[in-house]
Amino acid sequence: MDNGKDILLSVQDLKVYFHLNQRLAQAVDGVSYEVRKGETVCLVGESGCGKTVSALTTLGLIPQPPGEIAGGQVLFKGQNLLDLGDDEMQKIRGNHIAMVFQEPMTSLNPVFTVGDQVQEAIMVHEKVSKTELRQRSVQLLEDVGLPAPEERLADYPHQLSGGQRQRVMIAMALACNPEVVIADEPTTALDVTIQAQILNLFGELQRERDLSLLYITHDLGVVANIADRIYIMYAGIIVEQGSAPEIFHDPRHPYTQGLLASLPNRAKRGARLHSIPGTVPDPAYKPGGCPFHPRCNLAIETCQSRFPEMCDYGNGHQSRCPVLYDGNG
């Protein structure tokens, strides 16, 4: 890990709560992570652990109410995005930080052509002539590997396949050369072969453009392919963070260990897959102490009452499990 690289996006102790019928859902409860220039950071966690909410907050896309940003900072190049007004935020969105969504089927407006939508993505932030607009959108579609981009411009979203639509979404995200791209499970809705293509595409684009990529996923297989650094989220907090090799080869949190043990591989062929007992807690009814303790096989009595601190293993590798930390010395 190179600390000399400058930090582009830094989320510090972010807390996002939702007010739902008298209940308070603490979707994101003190999350910190950072994205440096040119690196791929993966935010990993089960459904409902707050990864999408923390990403949407970065762009100010959380509806308030019912959402409430209860604390923390989102620093982009040192500027706190949470302080910005709507107009200033619009200049950041798409222009500096862009986002690719999970569902390519519904993320494109069904009544406009692909060309219209890609051109709009450029037009929102830059004043360019019509011919240049067209050239650039063709170039963008070519960059994301859409065949016959000239002809695709006149197509409507429903004429494209899921993979093609996701490519269009990526082209739109890249339209104004953002420094950071947040990809929220961009391959979840696609089948496996297309998924591999899209992942390769992200890799290529990132190398060519020196992009920083914040990749949100629940799929550890995907993470293994692309991540430089990994943050593991559980129930609104980061439970472990570190470089990809450290997380995969030396996980220091029982949750991460459980996730990795659940992955199918050749050695376990024919055997029953490991699974972590129980389910993710409802964000409105989180257990006290360590939120993972009801499902943890290492839980001791203090886990029920004491919120675990980050334990440092050096080299940026940190984990919120004092039990494992003390055990290993």
């Binding site: 896309l61 619009q90 969105r93 798409g94 519904t106 494109l108 406009f112 993505a121 979404m169 739109m172």
Partner: peptide, 21 residues
Amino acid sequence: QDFVTAARALGVSNFRIIFRH
């Protein structure tokens, strides 16, 4: 709908989202 969120994520203004999208 997702495409409204997507348009907002691109920095499209509220006015434009209402009237164009």
